[in-house]
Amino acid sequence: MRCVHFPLISSLYLMGIILLGLSGSAAAQGPTQLDSSELKANASIVQHNPPGTPLEAMLAGASKTAASRGIEWKGLDVIRGDPPANVMGYTDTILLDLYKRYSCLADAVVIGHAGPSVPHLSSYGTTVYSDYIITADLILKDNVRSPIKVKSTIVVTRPGGTLVLGSGPVKYISQGFPNLMPGRSYLQFLRYISESRSYNAIDESATLESREGTWQIIRGALTNRTVPIDFKNGIFESSIARWLIGCN
């Protein structure tokens, strides 16, 4: 049977960052309202602008096709796939190593629950993305540029959402970035977007949801993948704390 106690050093580190978060900071931590004009900068990030045909052009073309096929035009449900990575050597060790890298790369690692969201069209028009209010329940790594208080809210932006454009409605579903469900608890490895003072997940693998005592990677390509014991609630956070100590 595997020991599930936190290593002492990691526990002390975790306690430290929790106390740090509780003590708060005088620095502003970014917009907390989804109608803030600052958040417009999120339209330009790479994650929201993958290569492809702009959705407006897709809708315009598809509405003509619908007419020619006798289909009642109600808009498009657009699905962006999440293909599995090259599977050679894709082991549990590689997976854990990925999160070790994320821990160091992330500006903040936050466990929080999702609140309301507002959809927008991206700059190049190839995705609909949504800005979410996230309440920070535990801060595993704080943002040195804009510290986060525990129980305060931050804005996290991610692909996905429904909008009505000129040629009709579009429901954009990103299988790599499933919608965050209100009230559910997520562990996210976040990058700080200084222009909007909000955050986005590093990539598709950087959002995990707590399900039955385990952190599950919620991206579509890994939906059915069994995660190793190291992803159990508590053990995973402890590992992150240990990895953070080793970051350069």
């Binding site: 993958p50 492809g52 045909t53 897709m58 598809a62 619908a66 289909i71 035009w73 109600k74 808009g75 498009l76 449900d77 657009v78 699905i79 962006r80 796939g81 999440d82 293909p83 090259n86 190839t126 409605p169 429901k171």
Partner: peptide, 10 residues
Amino acid sequence: AANYTLGLFS
């Protein structure tokens, strides 16, 4: 290596 985006008639 690749990815796709597809649209379904709602």
